[in-house]
Amino acid sequence: MQAMMEKRAKELLADGTVNRVLGWSAGEFPYDITPAVFETAKELEDAFVYNDFCAANLSKYLVKESRKEGKILVFLKPCDTYSFNQLLAEHRILRENIYVIGVPCYGKADVEKLKAMGIEGITGIVMQNGTYTVETVYGDQTVKAADAMAERCLSCKSKKHVVYDELLGDEGEVDADCNRFDMVEKLEAMTPDERFAFWRGELSRCIRCNACRNVCPACTCEQCVFDNPNSGVSQKAAVTSFEENLFHIIRAFHVAGRCTDCGECSRVCPQHIPLHLLNRKFIKDINEFYGDYQAGADPEAKPPLGTYDKADREAGEGGRH
């Protein structure tokens, strides 16, 4: 796949369709992959990668990139296309400056999980038939994909691209029974005291590094309210438990109805806080209260918080969970 993508990127650069390519490049370690913009075939040859460590959602980078001179090629995994559509619906990216190539994704590996299995010296990874073959300096090791896959990929909602200019590889399907709300349901089933304890345990670890916000494709504000001294809620670091809660509640609320559930927030959290569980709660509530809604699936759809129904349930209705 990597070769195919590289070849196509070079063609598009060569024929002038695009002048830049947004993709992934290997970092210090082969599993430490970062988004990167390539301007020449040479740069692509040197650094472009696409493998099962390429987790980053590239759509957010288009907010800045699509406003630059010329057209940019972007490779989007299925879940990234939802973010892309959402950004499009919110006029955050300029479609005419973007050439989208959809690439398949069968679930990205979580390097932490591999490390926890004692796998060291990782140099590469290949997935085939539900098995990761992890290349290491000590030779190849095989791992069942389900054991090493990132949490978010285990409950992947869709392997189907919702937007693209061209597609490389196979197209997947939307998975209606992805069980992505299982953990939310488990939390809902707890007593309020247990839930409170759970979230205190999680959120108290927050170091306010803002990684979740910076990676989130729904958090593209020119200036975040938490950085704006005039907003009345600006804060650089969470001083008290209240501020820890405040940041995450407001962030989740601001992306409610807009979050596509790409899971980047939890992926990048250095403290491993399951932030996606906050967003998924809103998604689940929206589905239950106002009918199924998948942000980004249809850029023309009315956002649930931008519309209403006269027969909507009352706030607080429906009893306790």
């Binding site: 989740a252 509530d285 209260f289 706030a315 607080g316 209705e317």
Partner: peptide, 19 residues
């Protein structure tokens, strides 16, 4: 109507956080 939607979600979230 917008209040109703926003607060339905917010209250549910507060409840979810154990508040």
């Amino acid at each position: 109507y917008f209040t109703r939607r926003r607060m339905a979600l917010l209250f549910s979230m507060l409840d979810y956080l154990g508040i």
